[in-house]
């Protein structure tokens, strides 16, 4: 059996879901025996590679870089999993939505509640441009599986991965927060 190619990406989230993934401890070694981690914030690849079997997406879509990476990941992945509450619902990342447009939020943060003489950072190509609304991943690309949780616990991550690796339909496992 050829080795599975797995990727994880980190969008608008706190990295807690990745920490929880690392909580899988020695099972990760078992996983490494069967799969390669071809792209991840905890791996060294610079570009999202083609022909990925499974991609876990942590985080909501909050800026233009997230949007682009999500689309890239979708194009190159057979299975995409929304990994954790931020990816599934927007969660804490989306707390800014009720405050209005991106401009409005920046204005409040950097000018109204910022230091005197504060400026709104603007550096296209360096600082990603915020989207007006933070949205969950499935609103911009098709998603195959959802693993809510903030973060999903290590055993829950493992149950999902095991099922997907073995080509089984994962058991329903819904727990927000």
């Amino acid at each position: 059996m050829s080795r599975l190619r797995i990727a994880t990406i980190w969008l608008g989230g706190c990295s807690g879901c990745h920490m929880s993934l690392l909580d899988l401890d020695e099972w990760l070694i078992e996983l490494a025996a069967r799969a390669d981690l071809v792209y991840s914030p905890i791996a060294d690849a610079k570009r999202f590679p083609p022909n990925v079997d499974l991609t876990l997406i942590e985080g909501a879509i909050a800026n233009d870089e997230h949007l682009e990476l999500a689309h890239t990941a979708r194009r190159h992945s057979k299975i995409v999993v929304s990994f954790g509450d931020c990816a599934v619902t927007g969660n804490v990342t989306a707390l800014r939505n009720p405050l209005g447009s991106a401009q409005n939020v920046l204005q409040q943060v950097y000018i109204e509640h910022g230091d005197p003489g504060g400026v709104i950072p603007h550096d296209p190509g360096i600082v990603p441009v915020l989207l007006d609304k933070v949205v969950p991943v499935h609103q911009v690309i098709p998603v195959d599986y959802y693993l809510p949780g903030c973060p999903p616990s290590a055993p829950r991550i493992r149950a999902l991965l095991e099922a997907l690796i073995e080509g089984r339909e994962p058991a329903a496992d819904i727990r927000f927060g």
Partner: peptide, 20 residues
């Protein structure tokens, strides 16, 4: 939260209204 699990709602397909 419990109802979401009970009815199998693992994600929301509607747009969030995000009221203030």
């Amino acid at each position: 939260q419990r109802l979401a699990g009970m009815v199998g709602m693992d994600h929301v397909r509607y747009e969030y209204l995000s009221p203030n």
